[in-house]
C-alpha cells in the first residue's frame, strides 16, 4: 500500500503512475510528483521505471543466452543450455514456418522479441505491491514494474519492427515497387487513366493497413497486459478490506495469476509471430 492510507482511487492511480523524469514547468529537471506534473513535462520526459526494468530484463536475457551460447557445442547439452536450445529451436521452427526468405536478421529478432517480451510480461506475476513497496522504502515514489503495461515500451518495439518492415520493403522491392504496392492495389485497371484515378483510394486503404500493423501490434500487447495488471491491482484492494476479503483476495490473486500465465506466454508468442509475418510480407511481392 502507498503511504498515508490512500483511498481506493488514489491507490489505483498510484499504481498506474510511472516514475517520470523530465523538465518541470518551472524549468527545473526532476522527477514528476503525480500524474499532472508528469503530463505537463510533455514529450521530453522519460519513464525511469519502464526503462530500468526493460533494460534489466533484456540484459538478463542476453547475458543468460550469451553464457549458454559460449558453452554451446556439438556435444550433449545439459541444464540451462538445454533450455536455451529448446527456446532457440522453438523460435527457429516458427521462423521457418512463416518466413520463406533468406534473412539472418529475422530469427534473432524473433528470439529477442519473444524472450524479452516474455520476461517483461512475467513481471506481471510478481504481486503488485512487492516491488513498489521496496522502492517506497528506498525513497522512490512511483514504480511500475511491468514495462509492457507502458504503451511507450510496446510502441517502441512495434516502431522498431515497423522501421524494419519499411526498410526491407524498400530494399527488396525498390522504392518504385513499394510505391506501386501502396498505390496499384487492391483496385486494379488496365486503362492508365483509371489506374491514376484509383491511386488515391488505393493509397488510402494501403496506408491505413500499413500503419495499423505497428499500432495493433503494440496495442494488443499493451491492452492485454494493462488489463491483467489492472485486475491484479483491483484484487490487491481486497487485502485492505478485512480478514474474509483478504482470504478471498489471496485465492483470486492465485487464480488470476494462473490464468495470466497463459496470457503472458501467449502475448509474447503473438508479438513474435506477427513480427515474423510482417517481415515476410515485406519480403514478398504481391
Amino acid at each position: 500500500m502507498a503511504s498515508d492510507a490512500p483511498t481506493t482511487t488514489e491507490y489505483i492511480k498510484h499504481h498506474l503512475q510511472n516514475l517520470t523524469f523530465g523538465q518541470h514547468t518551472d524549468g527545473s529537471w526532476g522527477i514528476a510528483h503525480g500524474a499532472a506534473e508528469a503530463k505537463a513535462m510533455g514529450f521530453w520526459a522519460i519513464h525511469l521505471d519502464t526503462m530500468f526494468w526493460s533494460v534489466l530484463l533484456g540484459a538478463l536475457f542476453l547475458w543468460g543466452f550469451r553464457k549458454a551460447a559460449l558453452r554451446a557445442t556439438a556435444q550433449t547439452p545439459s541444464g540451462f543450455l538445454n533450455f536455451v536450445e529448446w527456446i532457440v529451436e522453438f523460435v527457429d521452427e516458427n521462423v521457418r514456418g512463416s518466413f520463406s526468405h533468406k534473412n539472418d536478421l529475422v530469427a534473432p529478432l524473433a528470439l529477442t522479441l519473444f524472450v524479452w517480451v516474455l520476461l517483461m510480461n512475467t513481471m506481471d506475476l510478481v504481486p503488485v505491491d512487492w516491488i513498489p513497496q521496496i522502492a517506497h522504502l528506498m525513497g522512490i515514489e512511483y514504480m511500475k514494474v511491468v514495462p509492457t503495461t507502458d504503451p511507450n515500451a510496446t510502441f517502441g518495439m512495434a516502431l522498431g519492427v515497423f522501421v524494419l518492415t519499411l526498410f526491407y520493403s524498400i530494399k527488396i522491392k525498390g522504392v518504385g515497387g513499394f510505391a506501386a504496392e501502396l498505390t496499384m492495389q487492391p483496385f486494379q485497371a488496365n486503362n492508365p487513366i483509371l489506374k491514376i484515378l484509383f491511386v488515391p483510394a488505393n493509397f488510402f486503404l494501403e496506408f491505413v493497413s500499413l500503419v495499423s500493423k505497428p499500432v495493433s501490434l503494440s496495442l494488443r500487447l499493451f491492452g492485454n497486459l494493462f488489463a491483467g495488471e489492472m485486475i491484479f491491482i483491483l484484487i490487491a484492494l481486497l487485502f485492505s478490506g478485512g480478514a474474509m476479503l483478504a482470504v478471498a483476495g489471496g485465492v483470486l490473486q492465485w487464480a488470476w495469476a494462473v490464468f495470466h500465465i497463459l496470457i503472458v506466454l501467449l502475448q509474447a508468442f503473438i508479438f513474435m509471430t506477427l513480427t515474423i509475418v510482417y517481415l515476410e510480407m515485406a519480403h514478398s511481392h504481391h
Binding site: 517520470t20 514529450f43 526503462m51 533484456g58 504503451p151 517502441g156 518495439m157 516502431l159
Partner: peptide, 13 residues
Amino acid sequence: NINLTLIGQSVAF
C-alpha cells in the same frame, strides 16, 4: 503519456 521512453525503448530494442 507518450514521451521519450518510446525512443529509449526503440534504441534498447
